[in-house]
Structure formats: C-alpha cells, structure tokens
Design a binder for these strands. Sequence first.
DNA 1: CTGAAAGCGCTTACAG
DNA 2: CTGAAAGCGCTTACAG
Lengths: 342, 342
Amino acid sequence: MGTPEKLTIDDVAKYCGCSRATVSRVMNHDKRVRPETAEAVEAAMEKLGYHPNSMARALSAGKTNTVAVVVPEKWQEQPYYIKLIDAIEDVADSRGYNIILKRRKYIDSVSELVNRKQVDGVIFRNMEETGKELALYGKMERMGLPFILIGKPVSTYPFIKVDNVGGARAVASYLAEEGYKKILFIKGPELHVDSIDRLAGLKIGLSEKGFNLDNLFLSDGDYSTESGYHAAKEYFAKNKADAVFAANDRMALGVLLYCRENGIKVPEELGIVGFDDNFFAEYLTPSLTTVKPPMYEIGIVAMESLIRMIENSERPNIRVILPAELIIRESCRAGMKPDKKT
Amino acid sequence: MGTPEKLTIDDVAKYCGCSRATVSRVMNHDKRVRPETAEAVEAAMEKLGYHPNSMARALSAGKTNTVAVVVPEKWQEQPYYIKLIDAIEDVADSRGYNIILKRRKYIDSVSELVNRKQVDGVIFRNMEETGKELALYGKMERMGLPFILIGKPVSTYPFIKVDNVGGARAVASYLAEEGYKKILFIKGPELHVDSIDRLAGLKIGLSEKGFNLDNLFLSDGDYSTESGYHAAKEYFAKNKADAVFAANDRMALGVLLYCRENGIKVPEELGIVGFDDNFFAEYLTPSLTTVKPPMYEIGIVAMESLIRMIENSERPNIRVILPAELIIRESCRAGMKPDKKT
DNA sequence: CTGAAAGCGCTTACAG
DNA sequence: CTGAAAGCGCTTACAG
C-alpha cells in the first residue's frame, strides 16, 4: 500500500544500506552497478513505493523529458491534427516523454518554456511564420535546443512535410486517365507554398499524361469555403469545365455547394477533387475525392527525430518529405467520363 | 540581445547589489519588497535577459504550474474535444499554467506524473471508469492532489457535466410542439449514463407537453453509426414513426443513411435528431438537428475550478451541470409537421 | 524591508 | 563497483 509520506532517494539508500549515488545509478540503469546490488535496490524501491521526484531529477540532470508541440490557432478546422498529436504522443510515451500542447497564439508562452528550460525540444507546425516564430527558432538554435518544423521549411532548420507536388500529380494522372478534358484549379492564398506546390504537381502530372495545359484554368481562392463557392460562381458564369481541383477541401466544399444550388450534378457533370482529407470529406453528399496527408506518419517521424536530436545532441540534417495518398470517393470517381476517354 | 550564457538568480543579485532572496521575492511579487528595490531588480532582470529556471523553482516551491488533461482514446471521433482543450489552455495560459495532454490509454503515465510530483492537478474526461481510474482517483485524493472529472461523476469527487436531461427535454418540447406523434428513441450502450439521462429528459419533456408515452418507442444501439442504421432498419421493417431521436449523432447518421438508401425523405417523412453536435452534423445532407454540449464552457469552468483547488488548497464541493443547446438544422426543422399539429 | 542559511531531491564528476 | 561531496537554481522560514 505505502503510506503517503514522502519518500526520497535517501530513504531508499538507507533501507538498502547503500549510498544515494548507487540508488540513483540503479534508477538510471547505469551499467557499473553490481547486478545483486541493483536487484536489491529495485526491490526496495518497489517495496517502499518510491518514485523519484521529476523536478529534482530535471534540475540536476538538466533534462525535463518534456517537449512542446505547437499547433495552429484554428486546429479545430483540421482534426487531422488529432492524428498528428496521437502519433507524437505514441512515440513520446514509449520513450518516456511528455508533451505540452500549445496553440500558436500562445507562442510567447512557448518562448518562456524555452527560456526557463522547461522543455527539451519543440515541434512546430509551421505555416506562414511571423517574426515571432523566426525569433524563437533563432533563439533555440543559439541555445542548442532541438526543434523541428512540420510543414513549410525555414532556413536550414530540420523539417518534415507532405509531398504536395506528388499528391497533386496523382490527382493529375487520375483526371487525365479518366478522360477529363477541361480542368479548373482553384488556388489558395497568393504565395502560399502548399498551393503553389499543388499547382506545380498538377501541371507536371497533366503534362506527362499528354494533357494540353491550355485546358487548365486557374481561379483565385483563399482556402475558405466561401472563396471556393465564389471561384466556381465566377468561373462557371462564362466558362465550362468537367473537373475542378481545389487546393484544399474547404474550397472544394464551396464548389460542391455552388453545384448543389445550381443543379450541376456531381460527379456526372462535374468532377470535384480537394486536398487534405478534411474531417467532413467523407460525410458530404457526394463524398469528396481528395488527397490525404500522412499526418500520423509525420507525427511519428517528427517525434522520433526530435528525440534523436535531444538524446544524441547531434544536429542531423533532417529534411523529410512524406507521400500523400489520393482518396477516391464519389465526387470524382472512375468511369464518370468514359465517353471522353482518349 | 543577451549572450547565451546561463544566468542565475545570483547573477541578478550580484548585479543589483542585493541578495538572492530579494530577487526571488521580486519575481514572486512579494509585497514586502521596497518599491524602488523591486524596480531596480526588475530592470536588472530585463537588462541581463534573465529567466528563472522552472525546474529549480518547482523543486523548491513544490509546485510545477503544470496540469495533465486526460482525453478518451478515440477523441478523434469527437473533435469537440478540441474546444474543450482550447478552453482549458485559454485559462491555463492566463494563469501561468501549462497542460500536458494524455490519452486514456496512457493512464499509467498519468499515474507516474502524479507519483513523481510532475503535475499540480489533473482534469479527467471520465466516461466509464475502470479500476485503474478509480485507483488513480483514490491515490490523488489521499495525496491531496486536486483533480476534476468531466462527464460521469464518481463517488464524491468534483465533477462538471453536461445537462443531458435538460438537452433531451428541449428536444422533446420541440418535437411535441411541432406536432410529431410517434417517436423512436435509439439508446446508447446499456447502462451508459448519458443515454439514460437523455431518455429520461425525453420522457419528462414529452410528458409535460401532454404527449402520450405509448407513442414513444425504444430501440437498442451502441453509439456506432452501424447500430443506428440497424436500429432503423429493424424498427421500420414493421413499424412507423415520424421522428427519430438518437442518443448520439453517429447513430442519427446511421438512421439518415438508412433513409437515404430506402427513399425515406428527411425531414419531410421523418424528422431526425441527434445529440453531441458532432463535427459532421452541419455537413450532412440534410444537416443534422442536434443538441450541442457546451464544451468550451466546460473547459473554462474545469480549469478555473482546478486552479482554485490548487492555489487555495481548498476542497470545494464542485458539482457543476452546464446546459446544452438545441441546434435546429434541416433534418428536423420547424413546420414539417403542420398537418399533425394539435 | 532585507539577508544568511538551510533545504528542495536528485545527478555526477572525482576518488578509491 | 561504490561512496562522499559538491552542485543544479531556486524558495522560505528565521532573524533582524
């Protein structure tokens, strides 16, 4: 049972008739302890119900076994962040780490965690970094505190990202092979690197399938559902297309809403493809064909890499790009354009 | 700029020509420091770029300013947990706390956090607690470590929960007032307290509107989409109803899928109501009428209560029930049953 | 209002 | 393989 009195390492040492140093070594699996001694100490810790104080340990060892994970403000819109965090936690738990979650709006607190030596490292979901992020990255580098970016790379810092080009290329191949002839791409905010990569991947994929890029049209959007709706409205007022590829799922949803309002049948008259595999994608009617970023894998790799940096104090040049998967659902499925097949 | 060398409280003291104790008092806003002294110390900390070491502070003060938040295994199915966590973080940040996130599967790690004095308190999302949870609750109580349960109450521990009875009662009033005459309720897993409360609220609400409970029918489910689908299939094979109230949104979705497959028009021929305001509810076609639990408010109250317990070492008898809101959408909207109105 | 000193509970060279 | 001792960087009675 163990009485609720506070036990310290000295109590264990006294009980075992050894020194505090030896108990410490046993806890830290130091090879230099005689096996019998180690066993005795372990038995004592068990018997007494002793648990080392994390704060004392962290103070003297200079290591907290805690990392911070910084997610975007509106991670709610993208529940795949849950998968990311699950992955990070899975690795963390198996390696004895804990994770402190922070939204980007509390970046100043993250900075304080760093200043106060409260974390061994940080995983940042980096999108469009501001001066604050850059200052923090710089500070951490100077301090020698490991961190890793998920998403947009910055400078030469370690990063892990989704293969946006490859994902869009897969969409392109699919559309071309299915015989779609006129495609509208709805862009994200100007200069947003993901959108740029997705468009690039689309062009590469279409080109290599012999698709004439004159039949690829571009519209501006800002990732919001509304912008997708308006892009569709504006475009279809004067033009036609048999497929729309939106740079993200929310804009694809906007297109779908436009079609529903205007009696355009999806996928019969128009194929719609998004990107992100947003949480609602499978629940829409029709369900949305999209590209799924490997969030779980990203989390695993991110945390494993971070731990490696922390424990080996090596600064490996981590630059990882993980493939995204095309998820075919009803909004753009095979065989809807058989008549137009080449 | 500040050189990257490690500054300690002694450096600040030396710089100010005062003692380490005084610097400490200034950091902790101790009233007993002369204002001029305090100012000088603060200026020095600023100038030197000093930041106190959290671990040292935690060790000597016996307080970590960290709390753990335990969420269910499959919190991914219920992104309203993001709102809960956001709320907890909002309060935490403003009060200088950090949160360590843990899924229930890692309850053993939570136990270790407690044993090792790594957290000042814990917020548990409690559903159907196992022996492990009970043991941990008991241990924390014995240690005098504050914790609070969200959801199902246990023993006399502090808890915060949704008013399931009231939410379902609102649904009942609405259905009765709209003139629905024959209602099917799909239950959750046997003995699940939320489902029981929702059914109770439904009965109360219907009764007080003069609805004859002989026209309320019950079906078994287990909260899964499939169970909702099958409950509908089984029931409608031999019976009729003009409204279905499912104990959660996923089962309501199952009913909706059944209707779609069998050409039953929603809401024209059948009204469907769920519970939870699950993330997909607004994206379904038709969008789902449901009851929205006040997750953000729950998070706020939970964290504020926990901090109060931590900082005042009072053990207030916290038992809070927060109201849930009926969200009327397309699947069961006003005026669909005008012919049947009493 | 301020300081000297003990203490929080560990880890880790250093010696042996 | 083991121990004595210093040290990690704070907080907090205790005295004044």
